[in-house]
């Protein structure tokens, strides 16, 4: 198996950038969405893990 570390590194960087972009977009959504709405969704998300 041939692993192209250079290519993987490039993908890793692009993935990190995309994730940060998502976090910023998500924060913008939180800001414009009523607390009751976003927190209800998040409560399901968080509490599902416990």
């Amino acid at each position: 198996m041939k692993i192209d570390l250079k290519e993987l590194k490039k993908d890793q960087k692009a993935n990190a950038k995309a994730r940060l972009e998502f976090v910023r977009m998500y924060a913008k959504w939180i800001r414009k969405t009523p607390n009751k709405v976003w927190s209800k969704t998040l409560a399901k998300f968080h509490d599902g893990q416990i």
């Binding site: 009751k36 927190s39 998040l42 409560a43 509490d47 416990i50």
Partner: peptide, 9 residues
């Protein structure tokens, strides 16, 4: 100041 649904945590 933040009022929202509770999380278990």
């Amino acid at each position: 100041i933040l009022n929202r649904e509770w999380f278990e945590i």
